[in-house]
Amino acid sequence: MTHQFCTFHVADFLFGVPVLNVQEVIRHQRMTRVPLSHKTVRGLINLRGQIVTAIDFRQRIELPPLATGNDPVIIVIRTGDGAFCLLVDGVGDVIEVDDSTLEPAPGTISSLVREMVTGVYRLKEHILIALEVEEITCQPATVERVC
């Protein structure tokens, strides 16, 4: 069995989400911040009349923000609960991977990330971390706040 992943990179990591979940990739655009929201929520984007929440993937995996001057790229991802935007450093190719190269997520990766990782694919040059889209929007409970 092979799967197609839309890849993106954040810092030195290469991530992939199933290509069927990706609606589109758009350039960075103005967003409205949401006061009191979870820190992973970057703001709201007007996507052709639809209001979509933007999740900062760097915040999600607790990386420092992107250096100023570098705008993130936005991947619009569809899930069962509607769409959301994922802010990433850059988008790579759509690649096809074979199940035979799949390995379970290493036990040593941070618990923040482990929940959303479905597995790791060994590519020729990189390691592709495959993500579960439904889990990306989960807000790490430790920092959850009640409004």
Binding site: S37, V41, N46, I51, T53, D81, V146
Partner: peptide
Amino acid sequence: PLGKQLKGLTCFAGATIMGDGCVAL
């Protein structure tokens, strides 16, 4: 409506799109 990521926020009833295309809560 706000996405499910923002459901916990009691201060907002939803969002709307203003004339200039920006989102307002």
